[in-house]
Design a protein around this nucleic acid. Sequence first.
DNA 1: ACGTATTTGTTCGTATGTATT
DNA 2: CAATACATACGAACAAATACG
Lengths: 242, 242
Amino acid sequence: MTVTPLDRRSPVPLWAQLLADLRRRVAAGEFADGFPTDEELRQSYRVSRQTVREAARRLQAEGVIVRQRGRGSTLAGSVLEQPLQALYSLAGRAEDLGLPEHSEVLAQRREQAGDAAEPLGIEVGAAVVYVERLRFVGDEPLSLHRSWLPAALAEGLLGCDLASGSLYDALAETCGVRVTGGWERIRPGVPTPELRRLLGVRRGGAVFEVERLATAGGVAAEWRESVIRGDRYSFRADWSAL
Amino acid sequence: MTVTPLDRRSPVPLWAQLLADLRRRVAAGEFADGFPTDEELRQSYRVSRQTVREAARRLQAEGVIVRQRGRGSTLAGSVLEQPLQALYSLAGRAEDLGLPEHSEVLAQRREQAGDAAEPLGIEVGAAVVYVERLRFVGDEPLSLHRSWLPAALAEGLLGCDLASGSLYDALAETCGVRVTGGWERIRPGVPTPELRRLLGVRRGGAVFEVERLATAGGVAAEWRESVIRGDRYSFRADWSAL
DNA sequence: ACGTATTTGTTCGTATGTATT
DNA sequence: CAATACATACGAACAAATACG
C-alpha cells in the first residue's frame, strides 16, 4: 500500500495531488505488472472517476501511459519523445488566425513508391500520387511539404487545384477519403542549400523537420515529409499547477 | 444564428462536432466581439457543460482560445505558434522512464544580471545565481541548460549539489521556493562548434533551442536557455477523430 | 474598499456507448 | 455472448478568480 492519502483541504486540486502521487509511483517502478484501472484508482484514493480521469488524461498527454478502451491503461515504452499537440493542419491554423494562405505547387504527378512504400504499407513500385507544395502564409514562404498517397485512394488528386487550402479537404472532396487520424514526429534540422533558397532561410538558419502518417479509417492515406522555417514558427507551452 | 445543429445519432462525439463548428465559426471571423461563455454555448447547442468543456479544452490546447476564471474565454489572436505539452522537467521524464540521469555542473556562481534581467523582471546588474549544467541520460549527453535565478530567491542554490535531479527540486528543498508555472518556447537551431563538441553532435546535426521562464507564485524564479540534441529527442503527436 | 454577479475550475453522482478480452 | 474498461454525456453543486456597481 504505497498510496499517499490526498488532502481535501489543500488548495491543490485533487487531480493534481493524484497526478503527483502517480508520477512518484511510476518513477519508483511500481506498475511493472500493469497500471491500475480507473475504478481501482477511484477506490484506492477515494475520489470520483472524474478526478481519476483528469489525472490520467494528463499522464497520457505526457506520454507516461497509454489508455485504450476495453484494454486499460499501460505504461508507455521508454523513448525520449515528448507528446505534442498535433500540427494537423497548418492551412487551417493560418486560416483560423485570419492570415492569407496559398501554395505553390512544385509537383503533382504519379510515381512509383520508393521510401514511402514502407510507412504507407504498400509494395515498393506500387503507384502513388506525389505532391510537393511550397506553402506561403502572407507573402513569405513558411514550409515545404512532400506528400505520397496511394494512387488507389488518391488518384483523383492529380486533376485537383492545390494552390490553396488543405490537402485533406481536397482529398475528402475529390476522392471521398476522410482523414481520421495519424501521427507525426518533429525534429530540428539544417536545410540543404536548395531548401534554404526555396524557403528563404538565411545562412545559419534552422528548420523543423516533420514526418507524418495520416490514416483514413485505419488505412494509411498519406506519408508526408515537411520542412518548416524555424524563424517563422515555434512551439510554445504554458504550464501551471504542477 | 450560425449555430450548426449537432447530430446525436452520429458516431462522432458531440464534443467533436461542437469543436468542428466552433473552429468553423472562428475561421469565419464570428467572435470578434468576444467568445461565448460555457453557459451560452450550452444553451445554443443544447448540450451539457461537460460537452462544452471538452470542446473548449481542445480549442485551448490548440491555442485558439484562452480561458480564464472569472473572465471568460477570449480568442487568442496570435502568432504562428503551436501549443505544446510542457517539457517541464526533463530529469523527471527520464526518471519516470527509469533511465539513469546525471549532470555535469559547468558553472554554479553568483553573477550580475545581464540579458536575463528583462525576462526575470529585475534590474540589470542585480545579483543572480547562474547555473550551467550538461545533462546526461544514460552515458551520452542530451542537453545543456543555462539558468539564471534571482539571488534574492535562490541564494541557497550556490551551496547545493546539482549533479543529479531536477533544479526545481533543489530549489524547493534548499530555498523553499516551489515553481508553480511558466512557459517555454521551442525552436530549431544549429549548434555552435563548442556546443557541438560538448553535446557530441555530429557535423550537420541540429538541436532544439528552448527558452523558459519559470514562476513561483506569480514571481519570476528562473530564466533558462537550453539546447537539446535533435538526434536523441523528438516530439510526437498522435491525433484522431478530428 | 466592499459586496455581488459572472465565469471558469473542480468534484461529485449516474447512465450509456463502444472496443477489447 | 459476457465481462471488463475506457469514452461520452447528462445533472448538480461549490470554489476561486475576475469584473462591476
